[in-house]
């Protein structure tokens, strides 16, 4: 579910980055207010490392032969509370983006929102905690885990779909994308919900204090439906603004193809005027099929043989530059090493 930089437009990436950074700042200030904050830090850090380890463990799904791994977001929220688990997951996502090339720098805001903010700051206080209000039991723990993991993943994948659609990089229609993403994540959510319930049940049996303490801490985020509505309204306005910006800049598929057809018809009408000059040019030019007027009216830049060849040459040039530079660099260290030995 990690989004990549390439799927985002700058506007969407930066907006989501600002939203996530704001949420992180809020969480830091809330945790710093807590007296036990210095005790929480090692717990959060080790939990973050635990998420990595847990994601590495592959389980097999009986009778299907397929395997998968858990995400672990809701598990952390249940044990650490809303704000600490959100920060922990954010750091996990930052490390994944930097050191494992999972997601990207620009996509970090989206990923932290989809996989951290939604489960920890929305689903946990709105779904998980209310279900455990009447005491922690095996039954309530199972129900709460499955429901909240499923709803967290549904909202998260919805976020992925909306952010991709607002960026307008892929051609996928919104409906089709939703029809693919939501059922897949429903299945994933059910399996992960069951596993989360099993893990929490086990931990509750071994160390009931861990599970119960987390639910009794009053400092978890007080999210009311009013606040959620306000947040959703802000997000709607933001995405609406981005979408309309995008819509006015890039015409949709139909308009675009009309424009393209018009462009080419215009071209053929213009051609006779240039014919005499073009004739001489055709004879002498390196790339005779190249036509400047067609280039100007075409919506796709560089769609000509000359463009392709030019691009290929650029690629080659870049490769050769890299090779030459690294050759030079490889020769250099021998000298420095020699000098070091002399000292």
């Amino acid at each position: 579910m990690h989004m990549a930089d390439a799927l985002l437009s700058p506007a969407v990436g930066l907006t989501m980055g600002a939203v996530s950074a704001g949420a992180m700042a809020l969480s830091v200030s809330r945790i710093n207010k807590d007296d036990l904050s210095d005790k929480k830090v090692p717990l959060m850090a080790v939990s973050g490392a635990f998420v990595f380890a847990a994601q590495m463990i592959n389980f097999t799904i009986p009778a299907t032969g397929s395997s998968g791994h858990i995400g672990g977001g809701m598990l952390l929220a249940a044990l650490l509370g809303g704000y600490p688990s959100f920060l922990t997951l954010s750091v996990v996502l930052i490390i994944q983006a930097l050191f494992f090339a999972d997601g990207g720098l620009l996509a970090l805001g989206c990923n932290i929102f989809n996989m951290g903010l939604i489960p920890c700051l929305l689903v946990y206080p709105l779904v998980f905690r209310p279900l455990l209000k009447r005491g922690v039991s095996y039954k309530s723990l199972t129900l709460a885990s499955i429901l909240s993991v499923v709803s967290g993943l549904q909202l998260g994948s919805l976020g992925v779909v909306l952010e991709t659609a607002a960026s307008g990089v892929t051609e996928l229609p919104l409906n089709a994308f939703l029809l693919v993403m939501q059922p897949i994540h429903l299945a994933i959510g059910l399996v992960e919900g069951i596993i989360t319930a099993a893990i929490l049940g086990f931990v509750h049996r071994m160390r009931p204090d861990l599970v119960e303490a987390a639910q009794s801490v009053p400092s978890t985020p007080k999210v009311t439906f009013k606040k959620v509505l306000a947040l959703l309204a802000v997000l709607t306005v933001l995405t609406g603004g981005i979408l309309s910006l995008y819509a006015s800049k890039n015409p949709d598929g139909l308009e675009w193809s009309i424009e393209k057809v018009a462009g080419t018809s215009e071209l053929s009408a213009e051609n006779p005027l240039h014919e005499s000059a073009a004739f001489i040019q055709d004879r002498t030019a390196l790339m005779p099929d190249y036509d400047y007027t067609s280039e100007n009216s075409s919506t796709i830049p560089g769609t000509s043989l000359a463009g392709l060849i030019g691009g290929g040459l650029t690629f080659l040039l870049a490769g050769v530059t890299g090779l030459v530079l690294s050759r030079i660099k490889k020769k250099k260290p021998q000298f420095t090493r020699l000098r070091e030995n002399q000292y």
């Binding site: 717990l43 380890a53 847990a54 463990i57 009986p62 044990l79 596993i195 099993a198 893990i199």
Partner: peptide, 21 residues
């Protein structure tokens, strides 16, 4: 040899979690 069975995941990951804590 391949992966953890689904019904063992609870105690397996739970054990890892307790060790981490």
């Amino acid at each position: 040899q391949k992966g953890i069975e689904l019904r063992h995941m609870g105690s397996f990951v739970g054990q890892l979690l307790l060790r981490s804590f």
